[in-house]
Amino acid sequence: MSLRLSTVILPYRRWHEGSRETWRRAEQLGFHTAYTYDHLSWRSFRDGPWFGALPTLTAAAAVTDQLRLGTLVTSPNFRHPVTLAKELISLDDISGGRVTLGIGAGGTGFDATALGQEPWTPRERADRFTEFVPLLDQLLSEDTVSFEGDFYSAHEARNIPGCVQRPRLPFAVAATGPRGLRLAARHGQAWVTTGDPKLYEEGTPEQSVQAIRGQIEKLGDACASIGRDAGAMDKILLTGFTPDRARPLESLAAFVDFAGRHRELGFTELVIHWPIPDSDFAADEKVFEQIATEATSQLQ
């Protein structure tokens, strides 16, 4: 099974002060997709510069030609399906059909309270996500949509001419719980995981592999319940959140070993963070570029 290599570029730099060149370089290095985080602010970057995901991706679309672009991940925390659909259709048009929407239920970080609301419980996030994804699917696939749900409404929302990609741009659904996995099975062209967060601090790489194997088995069950072949579904691992943390980026050999073990689980795409000095994503840029240009050929 072939394995694609992608990157995620955090939107923490001004466009004309290095960010533009980073997106261009991602295409030059041959990455399959360059994603960015869709947050209002994030963790240790909260008190520094941080720019919007969709405007950043629009600018990236204008300075690249082949590179796919996407979010990892968009969530209902501060998005509404009607306005999000309009922006995604516009981005898909500007990019010439190169957009993938990574989408998840969201968490309890800064996004969860920035609009003045109390953070939703895991159950409340799952309730909203269960309504959000099908409505967004419909909005991106049909010219006119009306809908009245418990959390979201649409009244004759028009999205003409629709996506360049048909019937709509692809969804990469981040999920590990039962309801999220059912959404991934029904609406996702891909499934996304970061591994098991409970193992991040004290787990081992072996335990992480076992936990991810369990997630993939549950995805298979969710797909089987609707008659879908999970084996034909793309599976994406956003790296940097397993117990190995930064080790895969320490050398080409270390990354090839890490990638090989996860390819055996069924992953079709690995996403590595673009190096950010003095952060959790610090890495040797020369090693990073060597991985980008040589790793996939060593995994054939």
Rank of each mutant, 00 (worst) to 15 (best):
V133P: 05
R245G: 07
V133H: 03
A62V: 09
H262N: 11
F110W: 12
R25F: 00
L136Q: 01
S19F: 04
V63L: 06
E206Q: 15
A157I: 02
E17T: 06
P134N: 10
K286W: 08
Q300A: 15
G149S: 09
L72P: 01
I216M: 12
Y35P: 02
S279R: 00
A61C: 06
L72V: 08
A282M: 15
S6E: 04
R182L: 13
G48C: 07
R13K: 11
E201L: 14
P119H: 05
D244E: 13
R14S: 09
A254K: 05
V82W: 01
L252E: 03
L136E: 00
G177M: 02
A222T: 07
W120G: 00
T268S: 14
T293E: 10
D143F: 11
R261H: 12
G231Y: 09
A230Q: 07
Y37G: 00
Q28H: 12
R213M: 03
D221I: 10
H262F: 14
L237A: 06
I216G: 02
S208V: 09
L219Q: 03
T74W: 05
G116M: 09
G102I: 01
Q66L: 03
Y152E: 04
R24M: 15
I226S: 10
K235Q: 11
R245W: 11
L139K: 03
D92T: 10
D127I: 04
L199F: 10
A282E: 15
T130R: 10
V271C: 05
F45C: 05
L5C: 01
Q210Y: 04
T296P: 00
E17F: 06
R168V: 09
E148Q: 11
E156M: 08
H16E: 15
V164Y: 02
S44A: 15
G195M: 07
L57C: 10
R98E: 05
L252K: 03
Q165H: 12
K286P: 00
F129S: 07
E294M: 08
D93Q: 14
P178C: 10
G48S: 15
S19A: 15
A60G: 04
L101D: 00
G102L: 00
D221N: 11
Q66H: 13
R125N: 00
P11A: 10
E148I: 12
Y200R: 15
H32A: 14
R213N: 11
V145Q: 05
A62K: 10
E269L: 08
W23D: 04
G48D: 14
T130A: 15
E250T: 13
P167K: 12
L29Q: 06
L135W: 00
T268G: 08
I160N: 06
R4G: 08
Q207W: 07
W191C: 02
T100G: 05
K218E: 09
P248I: 02
F132C: 05
W50S: 02
R179S: 12
P161L: 13
P161M: 10
A283G: 13
T113V: 15
H16D: 14
Q117F: 09
P178D: 13
F51D: 06
F255V: 10
E206C: 08
D196G: 03
A222Q: 03
G102Y: 04
W23K: 03
P122S: 09
S279M: 03
W42D: 04
L3W: 06
I226G: 08
R158A: 11
D229S: 10
Q210T: 12
A175S: 09
F129I: 07
Q189G: 06
L57M: 11
P277I: 02
